[in-house]
Nucleic acid binder design. Structure first.
Lengths: 236, 236
DNA sequence: TTCACAACGTGACCTAAGTCACATACCGCT
DNA sequence: AGCGGTATGTGACTTAGGTCACGTTGTGAA
């Protein structure tokens, strides 16, 4: 793909960057490199040093932590028009990357080298404002995550996750195993809840994907245990 | 206390701010207000809007989330020489404060109004650098927290927390209830582990405080379950 | 001193969710 | 059609840790 087309797509995906001060914009355009990742590629390993400010134009990456026992928990995802904020934080503070990142689908990204990033942070108020704005959002979402993991039961979290991943057609293209890894749990437990909900008519699961049939019911359930599904050995 | 003395103490606690560009420093000094909180006072409520950049000169505040059932989990603490980074993030992004903050001890703080904060962020590279330097640490610590809550068992987390809170004399001035709230658990469970460890000679608990007697043992335990304590009904 | 109250100790019990060990079922190849 | 690999279904079991319901003890104010 020609460079002009890439630049156009990039700036369309990041309209804020098209609004920068002219000199800042020039510097940004001159220094940014485009890059591709294949599905499954590792974008960053735990402990790696970050050298670029990374903007995702297309595809999606998944940032997660792994436990010694091989379980994982997803911290957040980066989709088109989003930046990998954790990378930013590492750039600013000079820390190594404290998690791991992989491509969930083929990814097209724009990468701005560290030196230019730092110069723009100094010279361009708009660039700075954009970067810091993203930063706050990640903080909030991590705090929400802590809250969820500490206090919400797995079934509620699963219900919410299904709704978050479902397209307008209700399809969630993930295996039970992948959902388990996102939530920091194990496959069997996820399968249990899903088959329970399948019996209730809320979802239907196929091989490699789940279809959400009754979003409102699932949402009510995910919001606060309103309608008790009849468990295997439930009373009354 | 006279204003000069306050200013001196403040700048001693935040040496980086004493090194600002002269005009920036003047603006900072002119706009900063000092404030006190008593132990137990609420510094920020969930959802509140932040109007100040807050620097802690003395005392300590505790930032935490509360669940509907009244359990809590501590996100981080702010001590002398530290700033409340979450506040900063809210200032920059204009978000409401996504958690709650209380004073764990009487607090003396310096507060810089939002307008001046934003102006200094633009005009003073040194100030900006200082603010952003603090920024990265909070993200890393939140990610560590997610990791812990998702994967570490409560006994390990408690062991680590005791070591983190213990002074050089090994004293942790918290009640079982407070430790439970920090960790997102309940008092009975904390008491169980503590009395177990007291039987092992690792700690001694008094009313309102715990003394860590054997830091190395507790550290080994907290690091990874090396020496199994003999549980009530444990085999062999 | 006594009384209220906060902190702690403790046993009995319950439940979410992880572990183990399978049995299927489906999908793409040859 | 048959086969290996991946995805799913399911039961039996275990366990960390939360809940309940107490009893005990220290402590500071009246």
């Amino acid at each position: 793909m020609s460079n002009e087309i890439l630049i156009t797509r990039w700036l369309n995906t990041f309209p804020e960057l098209a609004e920068l001060e002219p000199e800042a914009q020039g510097e940004l355009l001159g220094a940014t490199q485009f890059n591709r990742l294949r599905q499954g590629d590792i974008a960053y390993r735990q402990g790696q040093v970050c050298h670029n400010y990374v903007m995702c134009i297309e595809g999606q990456t998944r940032i997660f932590k792994t436990s010694e026992s091989g379980r994982e928990i997803m911290l957040y995802q980066v989709g088109p028009g989003e930046t990998c904020v954790l990378t930013t934080s590492c750039l600013i503070a000079g820390n190594p990357f404290p998690a791991e990142s992989t491509a969930q689908a083929d990814v097209l990204l724009a990468a701005l080298p560290s030196t230019v990033f730092h110069r723009l942070m100094v010279t361009s108020p708009k660039f700075r404002h954009y970067v810091l704005g993203n930063y706050g959002d990640l903080l909030s979402s991590l705090i929400m995550l802590v809250d969820e993991v500490a206090f919400a039961s797995l079934d509620l979290r699963l219900a919410r996750r299904l709704l978050a991943e479902a397209g307008s057609d209700g399809v969630v293209s993930k295996t039970h195993q992948q959902l388990a890894l996102d939530l920091g749990s194990v496959r069997e437990v996820i399968s249990r809840y899903l088959s329970e909900w399948e019996r209730m008519g809320w979802v239907r699961s196929a091989r490699g994907s789940i279809v959400v049939l009754d979003k409102p019911a699932l949402a009510r359930y995910g919001a606060g245990e309103e309608e008790e599904p009849l468990r295997a050995g439930a009373r009354h």
